[in-house]
């Protein structure tokens, strides 16, 4: 089980700052830095093996971006390869800039995905519900229920998949078309089952008084010294991030030529951010004393 390792506010602030910086940066060096900070924290959560699987799966997306961007974007001045005239599409130009832009965007996607992965590994759904319900009771519950629906649907999908195969459907064999055709009814069953299940859950919640008035909270989180350290590191990271962007270091223009990298300055920013990230990961602390009843 996940124990309450940090205060919800510290976790949420940390992941919001990281994802905002990942969204704003276009420079692969800075994106790499955010990726590393995220990775260190994921490793601290002892989630390296499952994260590795996630990364392996995400690599296909990077590959997709890297390959597709140069095919559809002919911007960029350093031409690596030029095709003959292709009907409808015209002439294809593969440029270095388009290739690097595609790779950077793929990297950005993996970084943001990893930040969400970190949030999911770090934050307990019950803890999230308690925290968010202070501000938006119904939306928080809806969000929590949606998140908890996925593992249930996954189990359900495995069961339905077995039944489809028991009836003779080729969901793991044959051409891609055959498999897609076989999987379609499976989604239909899952959708119907999920709808029926959500009605059952809504009824159970109604029977237990959900939504009849102001809720109280079973557990009240307290901010521990480790949370303060983590929040401090997050704020320093945010300041460093804004400054690096303000000085133009985190940005990179890809078209028509790659501009915007000033290595000496970058090194300082990057070293600073990495340092703060590592201190932040060290501040991720023990589960003791974090679960309180007021």
């Amino acid at each position: 089980m996940k124990s309450y390792k940090n205060h919800s506010f510290a976790i949420i602030l940390y992941t919001i700052v990281l994802s905002t910086l990942a969204l704003l940066y276009n420079n692969p060096l800075y994106l790499g830095c955010i990726f590393c900070i995220t990775g260190i924290m994921i490793i601290r959560q002892r989630q390296l093996a499952p994260w590795g699987k996630f990364l392996l799966f995400s690599l296909t997306m990077v590959l997709f971006y890297t390959l597709c961007n140069p095919l559809f974007s002919s911007s960029g001045s350093t031409i690596l390869w030029r095709s003959g005239r292709v009907p409808i599409i015209g002439r294809i130009r593969i440029t270095l800039e388009a290739l690097l832009y595609g790779m950077t965007m793929g990297g950005k996607l993996i970084t943001i995905g990893s930040i969400f992965y970190l949030y999911n590994a770090w934050m307990d759904t019950d803890q999230a519900l308690s925290f968010f319900s202070r501000f938006a009771d119904r939306s928080a519950l809806l969000f929590t229920m949606t998140v908890s629906l996925f593992p249930r649907l996954k189990r359900e999908a495995l069961e339905v998949g077995d039944i489809m195969r028991a009836r003779g459907a080729s969901i793991q064999q044959g051409s891609l078309f055959t498999r897609i055709k076989a999987v379609y009814p499976m989604w239909k069953v899952l959708l119907i089952t999920a709808l029926e299940g959500s009605l059952d859950m809504a009824e159970a919640m109604e029977a237990r008084g959900y939504g009849i008035g102001r809720r109280t909270r079973y557990q009240t989180e307290i901010i521990a010294p480790s949370d303060r350290a983590l929040i401090g590191c997050t704020l320093i990271l945010l300041v460093l991030g804004i400054m690096s962007l303000g000085y133009g270091s985190g940005n990179m223009t890809f078209y028509p030529v790659i501009t915007g990298s000033y290595i000496p300055w970058d090194l300082w920013w990057l070293m600073g951010m990495m340092g703060v990230g590592i201190i932040g990961a060290a501040a991720y602390s023990v589960p003791t004393g974090k679960e309180e009843w007021s």
Binding site: R208, G209, Y210, G211, I212, G213, R214, R215, T216, R217, Y218, Q219, T220, W293, S294
Partner: peptide
Amino acid sequence: AFGLENLGIAPKEMK
């Protein structure tokens, strides 16, 4: 504890 939270029971009583 979910039902008690919905009914607005005080945390100490809930525990």
